[in-house]
Amino acid sequence: MSGILNSSIGRKFAMALSALFLMVFLLQHFAINILSVFSPDTFNDASHFMGTFWAVQYLLQPVLIFGVIFHFLMGFVLELKNNKARRVSYAKSNGGANSSWMSRNMLLTGLVVLAFMVLHFIDFWIPEINIKYIQGDMSGLMDPNVAESGFRYYEELVHKFQNPLRVGAYVLSFVLLSLHLLHGFNSAFQSVGANNKYTKGLKGFSKVYAIGIPLGFVFIALFHHFNH
């Protein structure tokens, strides 16, 4: 068991586990965000729960941050090792004949998602950490001194999506995330050794997930941009 991360298969296994975890997180994130379209109050309640429940904040959040950092760092480590494995390139290479564009450009789509996450953290996560843990306001209210002022989460979400440039950046990022997932979803299962009679069905589900979830996020961004 020792040194499993020193082997090519071990590194891929770890990469796949972090990917599977992040895909579960993405689904959970979407499930809460889509509430903002149907019921602002439910969205506020769910956001407040996620933002203040100790297990989410002090257990899942650190695991999530570790998972994100690990996934990106391991992606770069694998890319560097792969580049070393072929120092001289082909004069002519027809990759399109045997593999998908998505599978050959995971680094590119991953980098766009990374850039998006920086923007997303600046937009939502850092202000949230500032309010809760630096200013010490755990109330989640628009005005912490007025109990009737209501939760601030929905208003903040709507406010952020008023800027068309931000909405454009989000839409572009989710298109790239979709391309990343179109290869990454199945690839993660293959890396953990799951290639069996269920693989065909899994491939179908992966397309639904890889297109459906990012498309759902795009819908949320556009909905709030054009309805407020």
């Binding site: 090519s8 070393k84 494995a85």
Partner: peptide, 22 residues
């Protein structure tokens, strides 16, 4: 076998499937 494969300097599989096709 995997250790020898890594020691020889082959890269990591990223499941593009090009190998299977070719």
């Amino acid at each position: 076998m995997v250790k020898q494969m890594d020691d020889e300097g082959f890269g990591n599989c990223t499941n593009t499937g090009a190998c299977e096709v070719e």
